[in-house]
Nucleic acid binder design. Structure first.
Ligand SMILES: [Mn+2]
Ligand SMILES: [Mn+2]
Ligand SMILES: [Mn+2]
Ligand SMILES: [Mn+2]
Lengths: 220, 220
DNA sequence: ATACAAAGTTAGGTTAATCTAACAATATTT
DNA sequence: AAATATTGTTAGATTAACCTAACTTTGTAT
């Protein structure tokens, strides 16, 4: 099926929302705000996507991707993450620069290009932000993740991904001395405001709860 | 200046026409047919591009790119040819497959991407079809070319580029055993229909005038 | 120098994607 | 259960990029 750039973004947003919230059902306002359009606009598009059998939805009801819609959405996320990996690994982009360009590149239509890119990158499993890259069959390796904010003093964990992909956040993470695969020791947590003192590579830093909620870790 | 995908294609088409025809002045119908739209459509866009000071043109007059318009058009051609080179050299695309994908990739907006790609490819001077790649300053190495059809029996020349970039033609070129940098001996030319017998790598082939007109060569 | 042909323009219409403003349905609170 | 707030829908308008059909200008040939 040939979809427009815009239609693709709606499908991707729907999948992203369910990934992030864990809930299958999505609302019109939620979708609209994720895409930075008005609810009326999203509503129009929803009718069109329903017509194309890519979403499951009825008036005043919740929105669901059909399996076909989901398949397409995963393919777009696959392309997005492969391109991010390419920019990061081959073209020396920093991890806070890749997302914006990948937002454009993910819409290039060429199955061959995706396959060849995947091969060129030696079939990477994770993108520069630690997010899993769906394979050519659309399978995603979802490994259970906790956030740094769930850790307690004395814990040691390893950073595996970031939740917030915005450039300011990513730059801040680097400034704190943190990166994917770094080991983190939780030194202490301030009761009052949940500020956390952590140690990475022998360097201590104090981070806010908001910050800690955006760092994915696995226990050591 | 932020231009739409479509506006970029109009600028590129204008430059291409002047390159191919050698003439600076372009007509509305010519432009429309190059873009596969109706003259009325091209006329609308011309007004818009004039407003943005990217083309020089007045009612019933001929069309010219302004220097700003030309600069942008060259940048798009630079991106197109860099991407073709990337696909060909790094992703193992064949030379008849690269153009179509590059038509999409040339519209990706990121100065950094272009610069990094150029560096990654070690600042290539020519694309897979032998066309010169403009450098980061917009300079193009135009080396004087003749077509194979201008050669006479006894001449030896070297193929440097192709004029027609269509997939069927490029595949045919390969079938004849021809490629960029191959040495060609002109064996004979049929007076009546200008069919040409050539020798490449010891292999003789007979090619039509139409074919010969689409192969660029330099004398040996 | 007309007449005809080719080239270019205008007017009016369509579709995709967006908006605002008004309205309707559903959910939450008192 | 009624009132209120939230959420979702509809109607009508706008813009970009396209179209067809009719018209005008320019170029060519008799
Ligand atoms: Mn991203
Ligand atoms: Mn990512
Ligand atoms: Mn090309
Ligand atoms: Mn080329």
């Amino acid at each position: 099926m040939l979809l427009s750039y815009t239609e693709e973004n709606y499908l991707k947003a729907l999948l992203k929302i369910t990934f992030d919230s864990g809930v299958e059902k999505v609302g019109t306002n939620e979708l609209a705000s994720a895409l930075d359009v008005k609810p009326a606009t999203a509503n129009d598009m929803l009718k069109k996507l329903k017509e194309k059998m890519l979403v499951d939805y009825k008036k005043y009801g919740k929105i669901n991707l059909t399996s076909e819609g989901k398949k397409i959405a995963i393919e777009i996320i696959r392309k997005h993450r492969l391109w991010e990996t390419f920019l990061y690994q081959k073209l020396e982009f920093s991890w806070d620069e890749v997302h914006e360009v990948a937002e454009q590149l993910e819409h290039i239509q060429s199955q061959k290009l995706v396959d060849k890119l995947d091969k060129f990158l030696a079939y990477p499993e994770f993108d520069p932000h630690g997010d899993p890259i769906p394979n050519s069959k659309g399978e995603i390796k979802i490994h259970y993740k906790k956030t740094l904010s769930e850790m307690t003093p004395g814990n040691t964990c390893k950073m595996v991904a970031v939740k917030d992909n915005s450039s300011p956040f990513l730059q801040y993470v680097v400034k704190v001395g943190l990166g994917i695969n770094n080991e983190i020791n939780i030194i202490s947590i301030q009761e009052y405001d949940l500020m956390m003192v952590i140690e990475v590579n022998g360097q201590q830093s104090t981070v806010s709860q908001k910050f800690a909620e955006n760092i994915y870790v696995v226990n050591k």
